[in-house]
Amino acid sequence: MHGPVSAGWLLVALCAVTGGYCLLRMRSAVAEQRRAAGGEALMGFGMAAMAVPAAAVTPPRWAWLFYALVFGTAAVRALWAARASAHHLHHLVGALAMVYMAAVMAAAPGGGHGTGLPLVTGALLGYFAGYVVWAGLRLVPVPATPGAPVRAGATGWGDRPELARACRLSMGIGMFAMLLTV
């Protein structure tokens, strides 16, 4: 990632912590939650690795090609999983955005900062800006209505839907920040 070093390290920390929480969510008793958490953990750790400031480490070209291969595989898996759940379409867009950023960096001469296609970058920025707003609005608590059934408590902190939403929100913010540097 190119930009201020301190912002890069904060993004690395945010994405790594989010990836770690997603690994814990993989212990859920619900199979669909485990699958989604696995994809989100891969995305969090991959974003952390790609966000390491260029001033600290400049990865070789093959590293960017490796990222493109890993996230290309994740995109195919998300496309296959989208048959059962529309949530995986977001995973597909995220994986394709990672492939795009890795390809831009691999094509950059001498491992320098790559310049992406403005139309693709703009479309991805628009998508993730909208996603961040939508995910943020889902975190706003709604007042309870009288007579509404009370939801039973979650079995563990790894199964709490508000934490999963916060995790997705932070990854959306991270993806938006990474796309700004392309």
Rank of each mutant, 00 (worst) to 15 (best):
F176L: 15
L23M: 09
C22M: 07
V93K: 06
L89E: 07
L10K: 14
V17S: 11
V132Q: 04
L179G: 13
F66D: 09
A78M: 01
F71K: 12
H2R: 14
G158K: 02
S28H: 05
A37F: 01
V132M: 07
A68F: 03
A37E: 06
R27H: 08
G174M: 11
V120L: 13
G72E: 01
L169W: 06
C167D: 10
G147N: 10
A166E: 06
F176H: 06
A164F: 11
T145E: 07
V99E: 09
L89H: 08
A31V: 01
A97R: 13
T18L: 05
G147R: 09
L180A: 14
V120H: 04
G112I: 08
V132Y: 04
H91W: 07
V182N: 11
M50N: 10
M26H: 04
G110I: 07
L65Y: 06
L119C: 03
L180D: 07
A166C: 09
L79P: 02
G156E: 04
A154Y: 00
R61N: 09
R27Q: 08
M101N: 10
A81P: 03
L137M: 13
L11K: 10
P59Q: 10
H91A: 12
A177P: 03
M105F: 10
G20K: 08
T58G: 10
H90N: 11
A78N: 03
L179M: 11
M171C: 04
L14Q: 14
R160T: 04
A102P: 02
V30A: 08
A7K: 15
A56S: 15
L163D: 01
A54P: 03
M171K: 04
R35D: 00
Y131C: 04
F71A: 09
R83L: 12
W62S: 14
V93D: 04
H91G: 13
A49Q: 11
V142D: 09
V150D: 00
P141E: 09
R151S: 06
A102F: 00
A144G: 07
G126F: 01
P161L: 08
T145G: 01
V104R: 13
L137N: 12
G19D: 11
G112C: 10
A54R: 13
G112E: 14
G39P: 00
V140E: 03
I173N: 06
A16H: 07
